[in-house]
Each structure stands twice: as structure tokens, then as C-alpha cells.
Design a protein around this nucleic acid. Sequence first.
DNA 1: GATGAAACATTGACTCGGTATATGAAGTTC
DNA 2: GAACTTCATATACCGAGTCAATGTTTCATC
Lengths: 209, 209
Amino acid sequence: MGLRERKKLETARRIVRTAIALFVERGFDNVSVQEIADAADVSKMTVFNYFGTKEDLVFRPMEDHFGDAARAVRERRPDESPVDAVRRQFLELVETRDPSVGLANEVFVRQLRELVLGTPALRDRVFLAAQKGTRDLAAHLAEETGDLMLATIAAAMISAARNALIEEHWRRADAGDQVDTIVADASERTACAFALVEQGLGDYARKAQ
Amino acid sequence: MGLRERKKLETARRIVRTAIALFVERGFDNVSVQEIADAADVSKMTVFNYFGTKEDLVFRPMEDHFGDAARAVRERRPDESPVDAVRRQFLELVETRDPSVGLANEVFVRQLRELVLGTPALRDRVFLAAQKGTRDLAAHLAEETGDLMLATIAAAMISAARNALIEEHWRRADAGDQVDTIVADASERTACAFALVEQGLGDYARKAQ
DNA sequence: GATGAAACATTGACTCGGTATATGAAGTTC
DNA sequence: GAACTTCATATACCGAGTCAATGTTTCATC
């Protein structure tokens, strides 16, 4: 890697760190790109050159993980169902306390999450990125099965279980639970969530009989 | 209704009709709010007074329907499961060829859909509105069952089936099918989609045995 | 080690969506 | 018809993002 690329990387890192520090301090909407540029000692245009939009400053690092479920299905072992694959990958991520499934001890990660969930523009982007991940999963399933409509439903069901589990981790973390406490009953919760997807709603929430 | 209110309504209608005509003609992003205001013979400020954002000009009329599934569940008969209720309501809407489930003969409706799906900003809003509908459904199910996590998954599963069916209608309409043709095998398709949600993914797309 | 060509950062002016404020012109009420 | 309310307007403004032109580095080549 030449000096050029190293400088580029360093500049990008400086911008993003400056930006997030300002965001956490004063809120996403109360910091202008101009301010970020000044604080990071670059021009406003440079910020937009590196990161297409203001949201990208926060978003870039997370973006990869929205394709995780689709990747698990794509690379699954021949004897695994899609649900099996996603569940197994999810449990592995829980095991390693991966931040992408809502498990992180660091203050920074939690501040970042708070920032994202507390800012409409960022929250929207999370939803959209998640949607994209689901669509990719659906497209892959449709390739295997030939029915895009059913694949879309199946993908949404699988993603829903995964997302609900992650949200539950967030909720518990916000309630003050330690990561170890959350991990302790994660496998039970995971089993429960994916069971609903595997066995279907059937008589779920039927009032009378 | 006094003259004042009638004028207001008339102005709102004039703005929205002018706007959509321009959008359809030249694309959402290539029409500025100023142009709309000029063409509708009002000031830019007035447009924002009536419609909080540019997107609202297109969106307002559809907004109600994103709560349909939640309403079906909320008002269901005591012997119906949530899935039963949504399926029944959906079939009723198909029966009456309701545009909200993707069935419409009018050119205008199809142009509007094309506009929405072809514009990132509008497409995003559709997703978000749909998300909100799903969250409301989840909240209601959680009230009944007491488990928000499972309710979130169940709501997503139900919404997914419903949305996939609507998207399928769109696809077929885009492929040139007449509404009657689409309605003809709608009940079969509907049964199939909700069956997946009711019975679960189980061995769906398992490769080897 | 100087030179020329990419690559990159910077500048400043611009567009557009959206907001705040103050003013004016209606419609409504008495 | 005067007073009051409601609504539209003009105007000035802010921030995100784009564009075109102009520097400024880095790198390969001689």
C-alpha cells in the first residue's frame, strides 16, 4: 500500500471519528457537515467525497452485517435448511459476543446504537439496509426454489426472527442487563423465535376455541 | 362547510394534482417544489403548509391503507386467529378489486405506482410506512399474548405474506395481465402464501435429505 | 533528481428542501 | 362595517448535496 492510500485511509478515519464524537456529544441533527469538516481539518467537499451522505459517516462500518443472514444461507452445508443455517450462524455470533447481534460491552458501541436509534434519518437507514438484506436472501431462495413470492415470504420470516432477537438484546441492554446475563438465556430465546418460524403461526393468538 | 374550508380543500386538490402531473411527466426528482407552487399558482410556503414534505404530495392518499392488516386483527371475530382475519380481509379487498392490494385498471393508479417504485425517496417511504403498520400489528398482538418478541415475529410473518401477494399483483400487472386475470387465481395464491405462514418453513428449501 | 500526468483536495458558487418571521388579505362574527 | 381570526405570501435564511475550476500531492518515467 503506497503512501497515497495510507493517507486516504487516515483521512477517512479522522473524519469519521471526529464526526461521531460530535454526533454523540450534540446529536446528529445539531452538527453540520461544515463543522465536521472544520474539526477534521478538511473541506466540506472532501467529506462528501469520502462519504456520499452525512448518514454514511455513521453507517459505513455496520453496512456489511446486514448481509449476514443471506450469506449464511448461501454458504450453508448441503443438509441444512435455510432456517438451520441462519440459526446456527446467529448462535455462533452470540457465542463470540458479536456487536452485530446486539451484544457489546464497550460504551462506544452503545452510544452509537443510541445515536442511530434516536435519530429518525439514521433509524430509517437501518430499516432500509435490513430490507435490502432480506431482499437479497429472498432472491437467493428464489433461485433455489423457483418461486419468488414464497421466497420473499420465507426470507421475511427468517429475517424477522433474527431481527427480533437482536432487538430483544438491545432492549435488555438498555434495561441494564450485562452481556453475560443476556447471553445466558440466548439459546433458549433463539430456539423459541426460530421455532415460531419453522412451525408456523397455526393457532397463534386464537382467542376462543 | 364554509367558503373558507371549501377553498382550502380546492387549493389542496389543485396542488396535489398539479404536482403529480408534473412528477409523472418528468420524474419526482426533476420537479422542484417551487415549480409546483408556480404551476398551481400558490407560493412555495403554501405547499409546505398543506403538505409537510414533498413526498407527502404523493403519499397522503395511500397512507391509511398501511394500517389495514392491524385493523383486521384488532376487529376480528372471537373465533378467528390473526392469520384468519388478515386473510379474510385481504380476500374481501381482492373481491372488490381494491387498488390498495395492487388491483386497479385506471392508468392514473398505475402511473402513480410506477412513480413511487421508481423513485428511491418514495420507495423508502413505502417501506417505512409498511414497517409502521407491522409494528402496530405487533404491538396489538403483544397486548393479547404478553410476549413482544414473538409478537414482533408473528406480525412480520403476517405482513410479509400480505405484502408479497400485493407485490405479486404488481408484477403481474406490469407484465400486462388484466385485473380479471389476476383476480382469477388470487384465492389460490392467497391460500398458498398464508399456508406458509401458518405451517411454517419447516423443511422449506432443504437441499438434501 | 527533475518533469509530466494522474489523483486528489479545495474553493466558491449554486440548487433544492425545509423553516422562521413578519406582513398582508381574505373570510367570519358581532 | 369594524374587529377578529385565519390563511397566504414574501423574504430571508439554513443545511445537504452537486458542479466546475483551480490548486496541490504523489508517483512513474526519463
